[in-house]
Computed example of a mutant assay.
Amino acid sequence: MKYDYIFAGAGLASLMILDKMIDARLLDSKKVLLLDTNDKNDNDRTWCFWEEESGDLDDLVSKKWEKALFTNEKQTIDCLPDCSNYKMIESIRFYNYVLNKLKKYPEIIWKKEKFISFEDKKKEVIVKTNTENYTTSILFNSIFDASKIENNKKYPLLKQHFIGWFVKTTNPIFDANCATFMDFSIPQKGNTRFMYVLPFSETEALVEYTLFSPNLLQEGEYEEAISSYLKEKGATSFEIIKKEQGNIPMTVFPFWKSNSKNVLHIGTAGGWTKASTGYTFKNTIKQSERVVLLLKNLTIDFNKFHKPNRFSFYDKLFVGVLYKNNELGKKIFSNMFLKVKSKKILRFLDEKSNLKEELEIILACPKIPFIKALLNLL
């Protein structure tokens, strides 16, 4: 059977595109196939993002914070400008929201089959699963092949890797209205290491030990660091409610070169994760809106989807510096947040800043490592 659209993987990127397509009435009378072996009935991750005032997805937000701190052993600042909030969406709420909308479209089929490969035949795409072959006019592929970037010499690969504990302490040690973006007061051990804290009450929080570095740690090292951090913050005892862990690639590898007229790589597989931060959610919204605009055209060509900009160059510099000098992360972020107004930094990370703001941020960073990285790129 031939489909108008096939989505390989039913994660954030695929469901976000489908949600935007529904709103744009692009799925009426269309045959769509979703391929994913997971039912998406678990809360398997959380997405966080900063946003000014209200947003389109506020009904899905399970918690928001009016303050978000950057801290090291010498100084602490609030990173959120006035009228901004740091918001959290639990994945299960987003999955249910989109999947309930999809129920109104009987032509959308979900098959719990494993995506194996695809073959682009120019006029159609052949998609192979573990049980069957399908044809489609357009393939959206979100299946990430880590081998493409693990062994690539040209594009350095940093990893944002972490283990997080959802904890409940016996005594109050958290401020429920204040998240912590980065706490660099912990030992760096030659890397870029920080704590990320999302409090839900005075005694409940998600505490993540996070690194931006080329190599992973042994599991025990992450957990020992979290335990020590909680004790230093005054926790007399605590219970671990749930654990989570992640490994997000931070790379400027040109995933977009694998796109074709009829095939678009999306999500992490399409380079939609911002290389310098690992943040994906807001960029997925932006890229999904661009997909819908392209689908409205009479002639669709995903070769033209990628739009390079100067922020890709900044990301390349940042990843190159931290890859070679991983111990500089604390200094880089401290200089940025303590010397530049946080509103400008958040605009920069959202790729909405102007050249004057960007120059101010660049000049706040350690100059020699960035000059060397620039010369290497040139």
Rank of each mutant, 00 (worst) to 15 (best):
P187K: 04
K344L: 12
S201I: 12
G278V: 02
V197S: 05
P156E: 00
R193H: 15
L359I: 15
C365W: 03
I173G: 09
R347N: 12
N152H: 11
Y97W: 15
K103D: 05
L322Y: 06
Y209F: 12
L57F: 15
T71I: 02
D58H: 11
D350V: 02
K63W: 07
D120Q: 07
G320D: 10
R290V: 03
A205R: 01
L295D: 06
N96K: 11
S14H: 01
T210M: 07
N96G: 03
I22M: 03
F184Q: 11
F370W: 15
W110R: 09
D23M: 00
L26E: 01
F348D: 07
A24G: 06
R310F: 14
S276M: 09
I22Y: 05
I173C: 09
S227R: 07
V321T: 11
K103F: 00
L328Y: 13
D28K: 08
I248H: 01
K64D: 03
S147E: 13
N171V: 02
S62T: 12
D315Y: 12
F370E: 12
L12S: 00
F140H: 01
S91W: 06
K352N: 12
W256N: 15
I285S: 02
P369W: 04
S54F: 06
L264D: 06
H306M: 02
G9R: 00
T277R: 06
K372W: 02
K31R: 15
N152T: 12
K261E: 13
